[in-house]
Simulated assay, not measured.
Amino acid sequence: MIVDSHQHLWTADYGWLADPALARIRRDYGVEDLRRNLRAARVDRTVLVEAGRGEAAETTEFLATAADTEEIAGVVGWASLTDPALAETLAGHRAGPGGHLLVGIRDQVQGHPDDDYLDRPELRAGLRTIADAGLVNELVVRVGQLPAVARAAADLPDARFVLDHLGKPRITAGAAGLDQWRSLVAPVAARPNVVAKLSGLVTEADPTGWTVDDLRPFVAGAVELFGPDRLMFGSDWPVCELAATYTQVRDALEQILGGTPDAIFATTAISTYKLEIE
């Protein structure tokens, strides 16, 4: 069993895709595209993650899609962490089609310029609401926001946090990027309630000329700091197509790890998201 903890679906009209640099992935990506890539990469189940539309309707649609798609074992939906009606929003999603497949919530924290954004009281309240609902707090942040992630995880020790893309290290900066990332991610890894994704690395590297060796020290550092039981494989498809195919992403990680460790490629995702997989 191979579980991909991080993939997306979207349509070409998503606003953020208007960036000329994203022309390569500015098209509709649907379930049949996903299935074709899963077969090629020998992946069995996935977690579908919100794709930056920033609307509750996207979560509603994704849950309904997951309910009709055996390969999708869970959905990380979008919700604003500052929504005063967040608890009611979550309850509404759970009451709809596929609501039982809602496993986490992600807001676009990386889009806020403040490195300390997660320290704001209203943000902490949102994180607490998600945790109280039994859902994962999924965090997509810039590397400079990692200290705030560590503080949030320490403040909410009973909450489950997932760090996307290892906190987006500056892989193109080489040794300097590695040193910066290690110093900032170590306090995050020290929190036992944080799980990290080995995802999104090919696009943090040079998308036109990355190599496995570019990724290797970051993956090795993650294994050292988090351990396999708190790491998950994620393709970040179709974003990854800016730099690599789905299969190339899986193969690169398998090459670095010397195989497909069960924790990283399945059981950590299953336990973190409480996926019901037969």
Rank of each mutant, 00 (worst) to 15 (best):
G258L: 03
A175I: 09
V149C: 01
D119H: 08
E70W: 00
H100W: 12
D155I: 00
Y14C: 05
Y14H: 12
V212T: 15
Y273H: 08
V188H: 01
V47D: 05
P20R: 06
S80L: 11
G52R: 07
A153W: 02
D68Y: 06
L184G: 08
V49D: 01
E204V: 11
L156R: 01
V49P: 03
S271M: 01
V49N: 06
F233P: 00
V109S: 01
G144S: 07
T245E: 03
G174M: 08
L123M: 15
G74T: 06
D262G: 01
A131Y: 11
R250Q: 13
D13S: 13
T245P: 05
P228V: 10
G134A: 07
K197N: 07
N193P: 11
G209L: 05
A159K: 02
T69R: 01
A189L: 11
V185Y: 01
P192E: 14
T89E: 13
P192V: 10
P97V: 15
R36A: 15
N137P: 04
L86M: 09
P97S: 14
A67L: 03
D158A: 15
A51G: 13
D83K: 02
F62Y: 14
R53Y: 14
R124A: 13
A196W: 06
C240W: 02
L127N: 02
L225M: 11
W237P: 07
R26L: 11
T247G: 07
V49F: 07
D19W: 02
H112W: 14
E278K: 02
G99F: 12
